[in-house]
Amino acid sequence: MKFSYVVPVGLLAASILFAGCGSNENNGNTASDSNTTADAQVATTAPGTTEAAADFTAAIDKYRTYVIEQCDAFVKETENFINAVKEGKLEEAKALYAPARMYYERIEPIAEALGDLDPNIDARENDVDATEWRGFHRIEKSLWVEKTTKGMETTADILLKDAQLLRAKVETADIDANLLVTGAVELLNEVSSSKVTGEEERYSHTDLYDFVANVEGAEKIYELLKPELAKIDPTLEQTIGERFAALKTELAPFKVGEGYVSYEELKEEEVRKLSQSLDALAEPLSNMGTILGV
């Protein structure tokens, strides 16, 4: 969830750039044989003009199938979650909250392209007028801060309806190659802007679930575009692959069972390292647009 008018950009930039200072040990071998961005950029110079426009129909179809799968699971898991809320099962509801959201976070750019659905499902406190605030984060606050499911019954029902509406709409959503390319970058920008800072899940501190899901969503798109990218800029294709792998290695230690540790447990330098690995990936990923030609 990101609104351009609520994200304190300066603050974020500052916290990313200057988030303290860690040890001088090896910051993790993030890319064993990767190229620098400049190399990647140099490699992305001339293509597009001479070649016939690539055909992305297959990639788009596969992506729609993926989105529908995620949406199906999202509706199902949201239903389980809201049932727990309505039945007053506080602990069960808390356990179901973050995993259900992951299906949504993987395909967030699509939801964002579909009108008001994203704020209705995913607005954080103060993203919208207090009277209009609903969705996951409203319930999150009740579960973690007010420590009760009481009073959330209607909000729960509306959330499920919004999720079902999303599922219905994705069937016909406009998906083109440009949306794929920008969507992948947007997913990582989501992480940079709100997950890294711990703002997204400010009550439940389940930010790492969203973090991982956003990255998985971006990786899915990369995989679908990979064959085309390999034709046009194999160096870039390889660099992105390596940086996904490096980021996943960075995330791995925080996994416990099927879930992830609370974001509060991460030390400042661990957060910074994740953030920097993410930037290291997002930079070359943002050059995937080279497959679209000039």
């Binding site: 910051n27 064993s32 044989d33 190229n35 961005t37 190399d39």
Partner: peptide, 15 residues
């Protein structure tokens, strides 16, 4: 540095 690979460093300095 986030790499332990000298050739990465060289590439960086070249860029």
């Amino acid at each position: 540095l986030t790499t332990t690979n000298l050739s990465d460093v060289k590439k960086l300095f070249q860029a």
